[in-house]
Simulated scan of single mutants.
Amino acid sequence: MQGADKGQAGSLEGEGLAIGIVRARFNDAITEALAQACLKELAALGVHANHITQLSVPGALEVPVALRALADSEDYDALIALGCIIRGETYHFELVANESGAGVTRVSLDYQLPIANAILTVENEAQAWARTEEKGRDAARVAVEMANLLESLP
């Protein structure tokens, strides 16, 4: 391919970006910690607090519906999905993990809008807590980088 490298990373400069966050309340303490880590990183990247919209929904299966509502508004450069699904004794874990993930991806592709998926899928609560801070920060960085990357494309 001639010309600029289309595979280059986007900028981590968040100034001027509008970000929407949808947080599942199920496993509330964990998802609130994810949200706080995400918000702290968004601020560090220069995203202004008044350019961030936060919604909360009951659980991970409801996250894609709220993401779609935000995407419908066309007001956001990127979205972030936050949640925590902990394996239990039944097949329900697989159902929720698979369907919420597929829903997040579907919204992203349908709207050509970057969505950082930080819905944790873990075996136990200890694994969730071990990942909360890092995954919250990662979600913020992914959203900002992908918003800037898509903006830079012709």
Results as ranks from 00 to 15, higher is better:
Glu13Tyr: 07
Ser11His: 02
Tyr91Ala: 14
Ile21Leu: 13
Cys84Glu: 08
Leu82Asn: 03
Val47Gly: 05
Cys84Ile: 00
Gln36Phe: 07
Ala37Gly: 05
His48Arg: 15
Asn50Phe: 10
Val65Trp: 09
Leu39His: 12
Leu17Asn: 02
Leu45His: 03
His51Lys: 15
Thr31Pro: 01
Gln8Thr: 14
Arg68Cys: 10
Gly59Cys: 06
Tyr91Lys: 15
Glu89Tyr: 07
Gly59Leu: 02
Val65Asn: 08
Ile85Asn: 04
Leu12Arg: 14
Leu82Ser: 01
Ala49Asp: 15
Asp28Pro: 02
Leu95Ser: 04
Cys84Asp: 09
Val65Pro: 00
Leu55Phe: 13
Leu95Phe: 15
Gly88His: 11
Ile80Cys: 07
Ala78Gln: 07
Glu74Arg: 15
Ser11Thr: 13
Leu34Ser: 03
Phe26Trp: 15
Ala69Leu: 13
Ile21Asp: 03
Ala18Gly: 06
Ser73Ile: 03
Gly16Pro: 06
Ile85Leu: 08
Ala24Ser: 15
Thr90Leu: 08
Tyr76Val: 01
Gly16Trp: 02
Ile21Gln: 07
Ala35Arg: 14
Ile52Asn: 05
Ala81Pro: 00
Ala33His: 12
Thr31Gln: 09
Gly83Ser: 05
Leu39Phe: 09
Ala18Phe: 13
Asp72Phe: 00
Asn50Ser: 14
Gly88Asp: 07
Gly14Thr: 10
Lys40Asn: 06
Thr31Arg: 08
Ile85Cys: 11
Gly10Asn: 06
Ala60Tyr: 11
Leu42Thr: 08
Gly16Cys: 11
Ala9Ser: 09
Ala35Thr: 12
Asn27Tyr: 01
Leu55Asn: 14
Glu94Pro: 06
Leu95Gly: 00
Glu74Ile: 02
Gly88Glu: 07
Arg87Cys: 04
Glu15Thr: 15
Leu55Trp: 13
Val47Cys: 09
Leu17Trp: 09
Ala71Glu: 08
Ile85Pro: 10
Leu45Cys: 03
Ala33Lys: 15
Leu12Cys: 04
Glu89Val: 07
Glu74Tyr: 07
Val22Asn: 01
Ala81Lys: 08
Ile21Cys: 06
Ala78Trp: 12
Gly20Cys: 11
Arg87Asp: 02
Pro64Ala: 04
Leu67Gln: 09
Gly20Thr: 14
Ala66Trp: 05
Ile86Pro: 00
Val63Gln: 00
Ala97Arg: 11
Glu89Phe: 11
Cys38Lys: 01
Arg23Asp: 00
Asn98Met: 12
Ala33Thr: 11
Ile80Ser: 01
Ala24Pro: 00
Gly16His: 03
Leu45Lys: 07
Glu41Gly: 00
Ser73Ala: 12
Gly20Val: 06
Pro64His: 10
Leu82Glu: 04
Leu61Ile: 10
Gln8Val: 14
Ala49Val: 13
